[in-house]
């Protein structure tokens, strides 16, 4: 379980986040809904360990990950991150992008995981292509596969379906739900689209001007996907 407790982050005089608290249950889903500039991306970066909070604490599985003056390195948190623009590395092929996080595994095991993910995401024919040779929808699937390859306990997604049209978005959303369910990762999903947040089937929190202004009580707060 990820626990975010009274977290604050300022950039100069601007408070990006101000006393934010919530929990992401084990194997559960939380969607953070809010307009541009509400602090969604900052929140995700703080949880990923890419920035340090000015106040408050972030723990995962009972382990303190972030507090003022103490931040566990991003690669030691067991988290996967899917940035908004996919951010595939242009000098690596699709397969190399996904393999990046599997360094340290025996080669055969890494290969097996790669093949499994490529087959599951429909990317197998694109393994040797470079990011500029694939479409926007395919790039989102590669970013998802890359984040899930090391089998993280927690998956953080920052508006992963922005600027995709309706059919593509629905198909990708179904793929995300399926993959996250299969890997049993906890999902924290940031979006500005209420329908996307609702479709995920977990708890929905609304963020405005750096504060949590409302939670969706009807979405069974604190309940995971597998709780029924």
């Amino acid at each position: 379980m990820i626990v975010v407790q009274d977290v604050a982050r300022r950039y100069g005089a601007t408070a990006a986040l101000d006393g934010v608290s919530f929990e992401v249950p084990e194997e559960g889903t939380v969607a953070i809904l809010g307009p541009s500039g509400s602090g969604k991306t900052t929140l995700l970066r703080l949880i990923a360990g890419l920035e340090a909070p000015d106040a408050g604490a972030i723990t995962a599985g009972g382990r303190l990950l972030s507090a003022p003056g103490r931040v566990v390195a991003p690669h030691l948190r067991g988290m996967g991150l899917v940035p908004q623009a996919s951010a595939l590395w242009p000098h690596m092929t699709v397969a190399q992008n996904i393999l990046f996080g599997l360094h340290g595994l025996p080669r055969a095991e890494a290969r097996r995981r790669l093949d499994e993910l490529m087959a599951r995401t429909g990317l197998a024919p694109l393994a040797r292509r470079y990011p500029h040779q694939i479409s926007g929808g395919e790039a989102r699937r590669v970013a998802l596969a890359r984040a899930l390859a090391p089998r993280p306990r927690y998956l953080l997604m920052d508006e992963p379906l922005t600027n995709l049209d309706g059919d593509l978005r629905d198909a990708l959303l179904a793929l995300i739900r399926g993959l996250v369910g299969e890997t049993r990762a906890s999902l924290l999903y940031v979006t500005h689209r209420p329908e996307e947040a609702g479709t995920l089937g977990g708890r929905v929190l609304r963020l405005s001007a750096g504060r949590v202004v409302a939670g969706d009580a009807g979405a069974a707060a604190g309940h995971g996907r597998h709780d029924g």
Binding site: A48, G49, M79, P83, A85, A87, P152
Partner: peptide, 21 residues
């Protein structure tokens, strides 16, 4: 792009992020 660095840091140590990405 900062996103390219952000996407790599949860996966590997910072030295690998520098050298490989």
């Amino acid at each position: 792009d900062r996103d390219a660095i952000d996407a790599a840091r949860p996966l590997r140590p910072d030295t690998a992020v520098l050298l490989r990405v």
